[in-house]
Amino acid sequence: MNIFRFAGDMMHLTSILVLLLKIYATKSCSGISLKTQELYALVFLARYLDLFTDFISVYNTIMKLVFIVSSTAIVWCMKRDRVVRRSYDKQLDTFRHYFLLAASFALALLVNEKFTFQEIFWAFSIYLEAVAILPQLVLLQRSGNVDNLTGQYVFFLGAYRAFYILNWIYRYFTETHFSRWIACISGLVQTALYADFFYYYYISWKNNTKLKLPA
């Protein structure tokens, strides 16, 4: 574990806490893409198949459980909770995320660390996570002004993988045979997708204006 990865995990956790706060405090999920939340739930379920077979550390196990439980709870809440689901922007959240699923799985079959069930699902989760934010970014562009909590949610979600890139650079230089090319390249793509969001987020923060993504 290094400071970059720990900071990244804490930002990831923060993004989930901010999203939970928004949904439970405002009893609303307006501006949140259910499709992105469904993709994230799949990312964690596919990535943590080793939850009960490979014990890394208490921290690792607890965080995996937190990510799985929170992501499925958010999907459940947006689909089933009578109050919350009324505020879901169904007509705006129209990104065809099944293509992202299919493309990620196809790529995982071709590019993986080992052609085993667990490794293919691990690579699938890495590729899927890189593109999972797309429905959310499209929804933000369509829904015009973005409320603060939603903006902070997306910001922390983007920042966490940027810290993981620093973590990979650090591990590359400090560990002899460190090679996580699948995660590294996918993480770079993932962070790049947030580039324009980060730009407009910075502008809104600098000018102290409402965050607005151009359509």
Binding site: D9, H12, D50, D54, N60, F67, W122, H177
Partner: peptide, 10 residues
């Protein structure tokens, strides 16, 4: 080695 086979990152 077996160790590095495991994905130790979240």
């Amino acid at each position: 080695t077996e160790e590095e086979e495991k994905h130790d990152e979240l």
